[in-house]
Design a protein around this nucleic acid. Structure first.
Lengths: 175, 175
DNA sequence: AATGAAATTTAAACCAT
DNA sequence: ATGGTTTAAATTTCATT
């Protein structure tokens, strides 16, 4: 079930990437696909895990001021275990297994530096398999894209999809 | 307009983080807030840029097999420029200014290795201010969270919010 | 700014192809 | 898997506090 999407699926995903609440009827009119088929396909995409429609909150505006990327070096053969376990923690928002100097890269979202300190010095050391950690604090976030584009369709950075009449923008949405 | 959210806003965000299409009426019943008020507040959260409701597609299932994290070292004083420019590229999905050995960390989403090679060797060298790049290919993604939790509410990892009756999961959703 | 009630639109369930 | 139809439900608009 890896990549058996057709062009219709891709169009639906592209539309929903820019506005997750657009009505199926509007999508139907936009694409020429019957509304019932739109719903059927979106439902399938969601059930298969291909697409999720979610609210994304700007961490800087909701009291989570400290983002950090952490590069981890792991004991041989333990990196996957580390990924699995760290994924379970509420502080992690991104956990990937990588090539290169680090075996695992993690994004950690914390309320403040004390929260991060606790994570780094209390929680991480309890995890079996981690040899070392290097912290990259995020000073400013320039782009956080929640969609990755579909096939030939260029990604629609959600933050930029609708214009901002107020002109107010913070570190996350424009620089 | 940084963080003037009240508890109601936080509850609304928490609910929408797990299901961006939940009806305002359901949310109303769940929270006891009138449906029209739910709508009013969600609208405000969206307009202020605090919340976005978007479809998020699993890159591994839509033909973007190559994710990479790239650490960049920049010339003194050029890191912000680099961030701004790289944010404009369709291949980048994450661009942040960091402390530590790298000045900038970027997530790049590509169709294949050739696409990434083109990015690294054709596109990046054209960008003023970059001294060096180190690539961390993402072998497996264990957690991609699209919400960051709100205040005391623990984040609701969207991928885990609804159970998966099929039991089928790939590298992105469970390990 | 927040709510309630009305009119309108949309979604869900169903069925046929 | 698609497309159409009906019924139930949700959204939007607007008036009110």
């Amino acid at each position: 079930m890896k990549t058996d999407l057709d062009d219709i699926d891709r169009r639906l995903i592209a539309i929903l990437q820019s506005d997750g609440r657009r009505s199926f009827k509007e999508i139907s009119e936009e694409t020429g696909i019957p509304a019932s088929s739109v719903r059927y396909r979106v439902q399938r995409l969601e059930e298969s895990g291909t697409l999720q429609i979610v609210g994304v909150a700007d961490p800087l505006r909701i009291g989570f001021d400290r983002l950090a990327l952490v590069g981890l070096k792991c004991e041989m053969g333990k990196a996957r275990l580390v990924c699995e376990e760290l994924s379970k923690l509420p502080e992690t928002s991104y956990v990937v297994l990588t090539t290169g100097p680090f075996d695992v890269m993690v994004e950690v979202v914390c309320r403040d530096v004390a929260h991060y300190t606790e994570f780094l010095h209390d929680r991480l050391p309890k995890q079996d398999g981690i040899i070392g950690a290097e912290t990259f604090f995020v000073l400013e976030a320039y782009k956080l894209a929640y969609g990755w584009g579909v096939g030939d369709t260029p990604p629609v950075p959600a933050a930029e999809a609708e214009d901002d009449p107020s002109g107010e923008r913070d570190e996350l949405t424009a620089h």
